[in-house]
């Protein structure tokens, strides 16, 4: 009965989880705070929309191209990070968000203000898939992304990125080419974000410039920080909780964004590492639970 609704919420939450995992690589590992991630999101969604409606490709044939293009454009958009850092970079990313939105809104090639309509649902073997099918596709992409992120977090690359994030000069003195790793982070991040954009575009069926506004970027960064910067579990958790939370506040419809904003501020201040980040509230709870379990098992 409420199946479709829950599925649809879960689909969007999964899409955002993929995006936040991408943001996590950039902001969590290399500490390059991006307040313009909606721009990268828009690039994925728009590229896919254009490939489908103008070039007539299908979901599956357009997907690899879109991801490749997202990655390339992401690296290009990341180039300013070689010149500026810290707060200047934050503002540069905000700027990128507005510029991308302005371009999509003002150039007819990108549909302009009328947006791009008619991004059909993907098909498998000529058969159209329903909501459930699309959820499964999204979920499998999410699992794939988690796997890749997990594997990546075990590599030397992640260590180098974290070192770059902690102290760029020190990292350089250790022989890490920080420029390469910054770009590497932008590339990975925009790849995942582009993937999320593709999935989002298909599930809505249309894209409009205003769907990728600065408010979305704020939401994305909030999701990541809420869950726990620099951790995979935190990224996924943050995306799910912050996307689903306003839905629970539906019974106080009129006040829900007020509560949401206030809670966001409180939680970030009280739990700066995120609820599920290292040393976060839930993280400690779970650790304690696990420990207790281990103890009881030992006793028995």
């Amino acid at each position: 009965m409420t199946f479709g609704y829950i599925l649809s919420i879960a689909t969007f939450a999964s899409i955002y989880a993929i995006l936040i995992l991408g943001l996590n690589i950039l902001t969590g590992y290399t500490k390059q705070v991006s307040l313009g991630h909606a721009a990268f999101f828009a690039i994925g969604a728009y590229t896919q929309a254009l490939l489908i409606t103008k070039a007539g490709l299908t979901f599956w044939s357009a997907l690899p191209l879109t991801i490749l293009l997202s990655m390339i454009i992401g690296v290009v958009m990341g180039l300013p990070s070689l010149r500026v850092s810290d707060d200047f970079l934050v503002l540069t990313t905000i700027g990128l968000n507005f510029i991308v939105m302005g371009i999509t809104e003002y150039f007819d090639f990108f549909g302009g203000a009328m947006g791009i309509i008619g991004i059909t649902m993907p098909t498998i073997g000529g058969k159209s898939i329903g909501t459930t099918g699309y959820f499964l596709i999204t979920l499998s992409f999410l699992l794939l992304t988690i796997c890749i992120c997990y594997l990546f977090s075990k590599t030397w690359g992640r260590l180098a990125m974290e070192a770059t994030g902690e102290d760029e000069d020190a990292a350089q003195s250790l022989g890490i080419n920080t420029s390469i790793y910054k770009m590497y982070a932008f590339a990975l991040s925009s790849t995942f974000t582009g993937l999320a954009g593709v999935l989002w575009a298909h599930s809505i069926g249309s894209v409009f410039p205003r769907n990728f506004s600065f408010e979305m970027s704020v939401l994305f960064l909030s999701m990541l920080v809420f869950g726990g910067l620099g951790t995979i579990r935190g990224a996924v958790f943050g995306a799910f909780v912050l996307y689903i939370l306003p839905e629970f506040f539906r019974f106080i419809e009129n006040y829900r964004m007020l509560v949401y904003g206030g809670m966001l501020a409180m939680i970030v201040i009280l739990q700066p590492n995120g609820i599920l980040g290292r040393g976060g509230l839930l993280d400690r709870c779970i650790l304690r639970l696990v420990k207790k379990k281990a103890e009881t098992q030992e006793i028995s």
């Binding site: 705070v33 704020v218 960064l221 009129n254 006040y255 966001l264 501020a265 970030v268 201040i269």
Partner: peptide, 30 residues
Amino acid sequence: IYSPALTAPRYVPLIAGAGVFIASQELFRL
């Protein structure tokens, strides 16, 4: 908002401020 967050990483006051901004817009509307 800010004084408890001063020792925290830089993005914390940023997000806290954003949260307050969202809440304030809603408050004015209500």
